[in-house]
């Protein structure tokens, strides 16, 4: 039911607050190469996360571990709309974002296992990884904190007078934090090039959007600051890319921030320790069956006869190899040297 609701909202989201040049809300046209690329990249996230889940179960990964399974189309679609130098920042459900930014799966997995060749030398873990080289600014563990930080990244772009944008991801839960609105205010006041991507996966941990939010249309959350927003079918990578391109254009033209509400769904619990009793198995199954972002691409590839089952199996095998290699690396990479306890406190 909820899935149908989400679709309705998508189709009726055009509003006067949105910029005129975004009236065309059709999904992006994907070529055969685009579809293959999206399929490969989304599948990498899915398989990586499944492997992380297994390794958590084996005790190789500790602490909190928030999986991105189900939301893959959001980061892949948005990444397709970016250019060199655009920054990305997010909260703690960040593995997918890092892979989408092109970070090495081995380094990410080794950080999950707390090993010395992890992206943060084993000192950050699942929620705290960064790559300045790939313009990925974390990986932040405090709900909503990355929204002010991402606004600061956008501030630096304005200060330097470049045309880069800062992609600032947060969830439907973080959208209720006070500093989000402090940031909205400053971003619009100073016309900062920041895209606020609200990944609405319908549950803030165990609390559904309807139980936590007075305004459940998150694309409207910037209205009182005059920030335009759109609701986007976050399960369709083509729709995400098209919306991302509109938002990016808006920002690069110096018009200020833009809000994209990505309507998506996480298949797994909030974290590995969440039994997800707050929703029915049927609800999850229904989304998986009807809206799965990877299945959508797979279906199109087969339907258009752009790929055979064998072609796709080959991609599956390639992706599994990458993930297995990462897992192997992360299992055998040594723990940090004890001397690392005292490094990196100050520069």
């Amino acid at each position: 039911m909820a899935a149908a609701k989400a679709k309705d909202a998508t189709s009726t989201s055009a509003r006067s607050s949105a910029p005129k040049d975004t009236s065309d809300r059709r999904p992006a046209e994907f070529t055969k190469a685009d579809e293959f690329d999206a399929y490969h990249r989304m599948l990498l996230i899915r398989r990586f996360e499944e492997k992380a889940g297994q390794m958590y179960g084996m005790g190789l990964i500790g602490g909190f571990c928030h999986l991105y399974i189900g939301q893959e189309a959001v980061v892949i679609g948005m990444q397709l709309a970016l250019k060199e130098g655009d920054q990305v920042i997010t909260g703690y459900r960040d593995h997918g974002h890092m892979l989408a930014c092109g970070m090495d799966p081995k380094g990410v997995m080794a950080e999950l296992t707390g090993r010395r060749n992890g992206y943060s030398k084993g000192k950050g873990g699942s929620m705290h990884m960064f790559s300045i080289e790939k313009s990925f600014y974390g990986g932040h563990g405090i709900v909503g904190a990355q929204v002010s930080l991402g606004t600061g990244l956008a501030f630096s772009n304005r200060y330097r007078d470049n045309d880069n944008v800062a992609l600032t991801y947060f969830g439907d839960g973080a959208a209720n934090q006070g500093q989000v609105y402090e940031s909205f205010n400053m971003a619009e006041l100073w016309k900062l090039p920041v895209i606020y991507v609200i990944e609405n996966n319908r549950y803030a941990m165990g609390t559904s959007v309807t139980r936590s939010s007075a305004q459940t249309d998150f694309s409207k959350r910037g209205l009182s600051f005059n920030i335009p927003g759109e609701q986007v079918d976050g399960m369709d990578v083509r729709a995400v890319k098209a919306a991302g391109e509109r938002a990016v254009k808006w920002c690069r033209e110096g018009k200020g921030p833009f809000i994209l509400e990505m309507q998506t769904y996480r298949y797994r619990g909030h974290s590995m320790s969440d039994p997800a009793k707050y929703r029915s198995r049927d609800e999850v199954q229904k989304v998986r069956a009807e809206q799965d972002p990877i299945e959508q691409v797979r279906h199109r590839l087969l339907e258009k006869k752009w790929a055979s089952e064998d072609d796709l199996k080959k991609i599956d095998a390639e992706v599994r190899d990458i993930v297995n290699e990462a897992a192997e690396f992360a299992t055998h990479d040594p723990e940090p040297d004890p001397s690392e306890l005292w490094t990196d406190v100050l520069r």
Binding site: S148, L153, S183
Partner: peptide
């Protein structure tokens, strides 16, 4: 604006950049 939490975070983000 009078928005300490927000502008402190914005400052940190700018420093990270």
């Amino acid at each position: 604006p009078i928005t300490e939490h927000g502008f402190a975070g914005l400052g940190v983000g700018a420093a990270m950049a």
